[in-house]
Amino acid sequence: MITFQLNNSAVHVDIDPDTPLLWVVRDHFKLKGSKFGCGMGLCGACTMHVNGEAVRTCTLPISAVQGAAITSIEGLGTPDNLHPLQQAWVEYSVPQCGYCQSGQLMSASALLAKNPNPSDDDIEMAMNGNICRCGTYSKIKSAIKSGAEAMRTQGSLVEIFDPVITDKEASS
């Protein structure tokens, strides 16, 4: 039995301990926003936050997240309550096919949580693990700068990973 926090709720799951976090979140908890792209941690489509760090979850065994706080794209913001970066993504029309964008947003939001005013080099460094086959890189860069500025002016914050827990039974 592995227990962790998923988008601010305590969850537990009884599953092969080597199952990657990505598949647990997608197929066990039915949160489909995080994507499978390569299975080797090379493309970033599966990126989630593990204790605030952007991590490739297609290679991260579920046994490694015992007690950790996981945030997936569903925990970053919702259509009715967008994270400033998601707001910028929409304003800049960043997505084309959109498949990689959850991962891009999770990498970008982890960057801004640590570095509220990143330079071009900082952005390239943080985002280089995320492939976009449609070629949205320049818009991603612009949207990150715009989202960062919005967050600085709104004083909007770093995500919280020590919330009050409502014990939600894992549904499967």
Binding site: K32, G33, T78, P79, V90, P95
Partner: peptide
């Protein structure tokens, strides 16, 4: 204008083929 599918594709709510779920689904 901002493209119409930007919101769903920026919130993980756009449904791709791989996101399909039906009853009693095996992989």
């Amino acid at each position: 204008r901002p493209r119409l599918d930007a919101l769903s594709k920026s919130t993980g709510t756009a449904e791709f083929g791989i996101d399909a779920e039906v009853e009693n689904l095996y992989r």
